[in-house]
Each structure stands twice: as structure tokens, then as C-alpha cells.
């Protein structure tokens, strides 16, 4: 008995050591370059510091009070949610529709799949540059149209009402094709016997879609929406290249751009850190919620 416990402990110890050895390269790097910055930000969130002086002053919860009373915070959160919803919901609905169209053995599939990938892999800095030109009512392609109609086109980037939508449209443009390729791959692996059985039961295409296709596709939807959401909620590059949150700040600013701007433009690193800590807590909560809800609606085949 005793010998057995000893042996199993030895065995366990070996397993544990192997486990630690396997996970440690990543864990050490995470500790240095991810967890440490979080701890550091948490520390800074109680300080008044502008990044420049030797050290800051301890200000207790004052920075968190700023987070919740910042007059711009509502717009910024609203913009971030609009952007994330557009990129997750609108883009994916469009992508799904597109995949359904593509799945009908149409001509030019190869061409289309190539085209669908391109926006997603395009460097945001480059994409945002060409969109600046595209949306310009004088220098962009639509100029020809406006000119023919004799009207003056909308200045998307110079308008406080439209600038956010310019940013949203790039986000959707980058996501639609990419998501549609995954939906298409999913659609092409759907088991055909299920469909044959369903055909006997109902005549309604919608019902088949709602009760068969959609549940079968739910893992794809879940993966794309979670990964899309995580990326969208952190939107920064597009804003930084295209509008810097303007034309009248914070008309088109997102949460992450806002905290970046606080630190680097307004010299309020303490406030920015408090914003960052709140952001981290909220995103972890939302993602956790997504995973929990997923148990209810995501059906994995096996």
C-alpha cells in the first residue's frame, strides 16, 4: 500500500514536472509581458502620473471616479458597442447570407474566395488609407456620381455624425468575406442525410434553415462571434489612422483609443490606467458570459 502511494506520488511528481516544463515558456512570457503590465496598470490606476515625471502621487480612487464621471465616456462606450455589434452581428449576418449564395455551386467560386480573404489580411494602416480616399467626396470614386447628379457628396470623415459609420464600414468590410469563408466551409460539411430526413417532414425552407442549418452551424457562429467580438472591442488602428476620434472628439473614438489618447495626448496615464483596468474587467465578464450562454445554444456535433 505504502509503496503504491509512494510510487503514484513519484509518478504524479513526474507528471507535474512535465506539465510545468511544458507550460512554462508561455507562462514566463505571459508573466513578463502581459500579467506584469496588468499589475503595473492596476498600480498606476491609483496614481496621478503623466509618464514624464520621476514618479506620480498616490490619489486613491480618484482616477476611477474620473472613469465614471468622464463626460466623454458615454459616447466612447456607445461607439465601441456600435462598432462591435456591427462587426459581430451585421457582418456575420451578411457573411452567412453570402455563404448561402456561394454554396449554390455558382461559377467563379475560386475568384470569390480569394476576394473574400483579401480585406481581412490587409494591413489596417493600408486599408484605412485607401478608405480615406474612397470616402472623400471630391477625390474618391463616388465623386463622379455626385458630379453627374449635381450634388455635393457627404464628407464622411469631416462629419461628426458620419465619421463613426466610416469606421464601422471598414470593420464590416474586413470581417464579411473572412466570416463567409468559414460559414461556407461549415455549410459544405453539413450531413446530407439529415437534410433528406427533414425534406420528408416539412416543405418550408425557412424551417429547415431555422431548425437544422442554424443549429448545425452554431459552433461556427460561436467561434466567429467570440473571436470577432474580442478583436472588435479592442478596435484601435482604424480610429488612429482615419479620424483620431474626430472630427470633434470623441465623435468616432473607441474605448481603447480613448485611453491611449488620455495617456499620450492629455498626459493622464493614471486615468488611462483606470480606464484600462475597467476595460479588462468588463471584457472578461462579457466573454465569460458568452461562453456560459453558449452552453444553451451551441451544438457540437459529437
Amino acid at each position: 500500500m505504502g509503496r503504491r502511494t509512494k510510487q503514484s506520488w513519484k509518478r504524479n511528481r513526474a507528471e507535474w514536472l512535465t506539465f510545468l516544463a511544458f507550460v512554462s515558456p508561455n507562462l514566463v512570457l505571459f508573466a513578463l509581458f502581459t500579467y506584469w503590465p496588468i499589475v503595473y496598470s492596476a498600480y498606476l490606476s491609483f496614481m496621478d502620473w503623466n509618464l514624464l515625471t520621476a514618479r506620480g502621487a498616490f490619489v486613491e480612487l480618484a482616477n476611477y471616479r474620473v472613469v465614471f464621471t468622464d463626460p466623454q465616456i458615454r459616447t466612447v462606450i456607445g461607439n465601441t458597442l456600435i462598432y462591435a455589434c456591427a462587426v459581430v452581428c451585421v457582418a456575420q449576418a451578411l457573411a452567412f447570407a453570402l455563404a448561402l449564395l456561394l454554396n449554390r455551386n455558382v461559377r467563379g467560386q475560386v475568384f470569390f474566395r480569394t476576394l473574400a480573404f483579401a480585406p481581412h489580411v490587409t494591413t489596417t494602416a493600408a486599408a484605412a488609407l485607401v478608405w480615406v480616399l474612397l470616402l472623400d467626396p471630391d477625390l474618391g470614386p463616388s465623386s463622379v456620381l455626385y458630379n453627374a447628379l449635381g450634388i455635393h457628396g457627404p464628407h464622411f470623415l469631416a462629419s461628426s455624425k458620419l465619421a463613426l459609420w466610416a469606421i464601422v464600414s471598414i470593420g464590416v468590410w474586413k470581417e464579411v468575406g473572412f466570416a463567409s469563408i468559414f460559414f461556407l466551409a461549415g455549410l459544405q460539411t453539413l450531413p446530407r442525410d439529415c437534410y433528406e430526413a427533414a425534406e420528408l417532414e416539412t416543405d418550408s425552407g425557412w424551417k429547415v434553415f431555422r431548425h437544422l442549418t442554424l443549429p448545425l452551424m452554431s459552433p461556427v457562429v460561436f467561434f466567429l462571434s467570440v473571436s470577432g467580438f474580442i478583436a472588435a472591442i479592442k478596435a484601435f488602428d482604424v480610429v488612429s489612422v482615419m479620424t483620431q476620434g474626430g472630427p470633434v472628439y470623441p465623435a468616432s473614438s473607441t474605448y481603447v483609443y480613448h485611453l491611449y489618447r488620455l495617456a499620450f495626448q492629455e498626459f493622464r496615464a493614471g486615468d488611462a490606467s483606470a480606464f484600462a483596468v475597467v476595460f479588462f474587467v468588463i471584457t472578461v465578464a462579457i466573454t465569460g458570459l458568452q461562453f456560459r450562454l453558449a452552453r444553451k445554444w451551441v451544438h457540437y456535433g459529437d
Partner: peptide, 20 residues
């Protein structure tokens, strides 16, 4: 098997030290 484990974990630990 145990030896295998132990040896490898040591090798890997050294490698990590070198990398980090």
C-alpha cells in the same frame, strides 16, 4: 517511462532558462 519524463522535463527546463 518515469526516467523519460524526468529527463525531458530537465532538458526543457534548461531550454526555457536559456530562452527567457
Amino acid at each position: 517511462i518515469l526516467h523519460y519524463h524526468a529527463d525531458h522535463s530537465r532538458v526543457i527546463a534548461c531550454a526555457i532558462l536559456c530562452v527567457t
